[in-house]
């Protein structure tokens, strides 16, 4: 869970206490959530959203979305015909 920040933010300069702007943070949103940023940028974005009221809910919504896709996107699908065909292929392969 991403924690809400508490400072007012200036989107051009970012909230006080962070060295990046909201735009710089939002431009890296998915890379941050995917853990694909360089360690230095991971920390800068993490530091920004920890105190930025404007950005943290935006990051949180995307995190919730990605969690749902990851947890539910692979829902299994039943195919009886397929099982029969696979068993047949295995029987032929073993002969």
């Amino acid at each position: 869970m991403i924690s809400p920040g508490d400072s007012g933010s200036d989107r051009m300069h970012g909230p006080r206490g962070t060295d990046i702007t909201c735009q710089e943070a939002l431009d890296r949103l998915f890379e941050f959530l995917d853990g694909e940023l360089e360690p230095e940028w991971m920390e800068r974005v993490r530091g920004h959203i920890a105190i930025c009221r404007h950005c943290w809910p935006r990051f949180d919504v995307e995190r919730v979305f990605l969690d749902h896709i990851a947890a539910r996107g692979l829902a299994p699908t039943r195919s009886r015909r397929l099982e029969r065909r696979v068993r047949e292929i295995l029987r032929n392969a073993a002969e």
Partner: peptide, 11 residues
Amino acid sequence: ALVHLDDLYGL
């Protein structure tokens, strides 16, 4: 392996 057939088909 075949217990995972539905998962494989889903993917």
